[in-house]
């Protein structure tokens, strides 16, 4: 137990939709400070796994973060235990400014009295997050008008001020330019130092550059796990990728 304190520990996770088994008995351990990439062909159950951990879909088994069991709690209660996530398509409050987005993310524990007043000054953690994600100069811009990459960074910034200890990122670099990917990767490295990070990603080049460990899911089960080199050398992984979606590896090689 001691080695997983603060880490994510999943045992026998199972998600069934109307008889279809999307996640089929997954065991997964992610240590604090790790950047774990979760890969696998479409339909492997990656996003469903994150949905289950964050309380969005019902699941059986166990998912503990630190001392706390996450399964069976409401979404907002899981979030308050320090679990934050992003989505494939950035889900920001587009009618609000960057600053307002971050301020809301930082405020789940605020008292009613604070809520009913205006924001006087920019809270320290919000200012710091603005700095980290490089959006200080754009803090009063409506979030809806940000560039695609900046939207994803803002999402990550919201997780930081939300004080999430476990970050679950669903395809954070999809649709980003090369420079934006680099910047995102560096951001992940900075963020991971005192947090646990799980990234769902299809981009193999990005994975090779920034993953510390990798778990391959296939048909709802863990197919392989280890460092990038170990996973790449695993014949089972090669079979799944080359056999079904050869483009995923090939695409990564040339990207």
């Amino acid at each position: 137990m001691s080695e997983t304190a603060g880490g994510l520990r999943i045992r026998g996770l199972r998600v069934v939709f109307d008889g279809f088994v999307a996640v089929d008995g997954v065991d997964l351990d992610v240590e604090p400070g790790d950047i774990r990439f979760l890969i696998g062909p479409n339909g492997a159950g990656k996003t469903t796994l994150v949905d289950a951990v964050t309380g969005l879909v019902k699941a059986t088994g166990s998912a503990r973060f630190g001392e706390q069991e996450l399964l069976g709690r409401d979404v907002h209660r899981v979030a308050r235990l320090g679990v934050g996530r992003t989505f494939q398509t950035a889900a920001l409050f587009e009618e609000l400014t960057v600053l307002q987005n971050l301020d809301i993310a930082a405020g789940a524990g605020r008292s009613p009295w604070t809520m009913l007043r205006r924001r006087g000054t920019v809270p320290d953690d919000v200012a710091q997050a603005l700095e980290t994600i490089g959006l200080t100069g754009r803090r009063d811009v409506l979030a809806g008008t940000l560039a695609h990459g900046q939207k994803q960074w803002l999402e990550i910034g919201m997780l930081l001020v939300q004080n999430a200890r476990l970050l679950l990122l669903d395809e954070p670099v999809a649709g980003m330019s090369h420079e934006e990917r680099e910047a995102t990767g560096e951001l992940l490295g900075k963020v991971a130092s005192d947090r646990t990070v799980v990234v769902i990603e299809h981009d193999m080049d990005f994975l090779r550059r920034f993953a510390r460990t990798v778990t391959v899911l296939h048909a709802g089960k863990v197919l392989s796990e280890g460092t990038v080199a170990q996973v790449q050398a695993d014949p089972k992984v090669q079979e799944v990728y080359l056999g079904h979606t050869a483009d995923a590896v090939a695409q990564g090689a040339e990207a």
Binding site: H76, A79, F87, L96, G109, M115, L116, R117, R118, R119
Partner: peptide, 24 residues
């Protein structure tokens, strides 16, 4: 214009996102 007012707009535009930030 309070923080509550901003949060209310956030709920209007993206209720689920607000939930993932720890609000009900």
């Amino acid at each position: 214009h309070s923080r509550y007012g901003e949060l209310l707009v956030a709920v209007r535009d993206s209720e689920n996102r607000v939930r993932f930030l720890g609000y009900n």
